[in-house]
Amino acid sequence: MEAASAAQGALVHDEHHGPPPANRSSAVEPQMLGMLLFIISEVMVFGAFFAAYFFIRIVGGAEWPAQGTELPVAIAGVNTAILLSSSLTLHWALVSVRAGNRAGLKAGILLTTLLGATFLFIQINEYVHLGFAAQDHAQGTIFFGLTGLHGAHVLIGLVLLIMVTVRSFRGHFSEKSHWGLEVPGIYWHFVDVMWIIVYTTIYIL
């Protein structure tokens, strides 16, 4: 009896390449829920930076805008359009993979990555030519703080997109299984939406 159960145990162990499946008590995909919760905490990081922005601008009553801090609203507006269009191409990639269109998936995800990189490049170019620095005054600090925080998130999003691109070209993802595209995709959409808020607050208000 003992030997039999031991043999059975070994058999069970060979079959098991992981924990037995857990009961699924929610219709939400765990990876997606995890990403949404992560986005909530990211929103709060931005919230803290916006708090700093309004403390410096309104509660502190600093001169606004400080002398010599005119921002290139139009160029940043074009940049906004570039970033927003990357959300569309990303959605195209998702629609393509759902329809089994691999060429569309590859083109969409590659285009998204390139648009994101373009956005980042233009923003760095803007930093170089602005004519004021974060070290000059708190107004400059919070400009670089908020846009820099967003830029860091674009960078994280780009790293995720590059991973997805590599995996797309290596033949991953199918009509049925594409969470590896959809979950980073949600993060990229969040980065885009957050840019609209950052742009509106900093450049327009």
Binding site: A51, F55, I56, A66, A134, A138, Q139, T141
Partner: peptide, 25 residues
């Protein structure tokens, strides 16, 4: 970290920084 390491002005009162903002956040 930014104030300390890179000379940002979140909390330098002489350059319009807001010290109480730290406590609120």
């Amino acid at each position: 970290l930014l104030d300390y390491g890179l000379g940002f002005n979140f909390f330098s009162a002489s350059r319009n920084g807001d010290v109480l903002m730290y406590q609120h956040v």
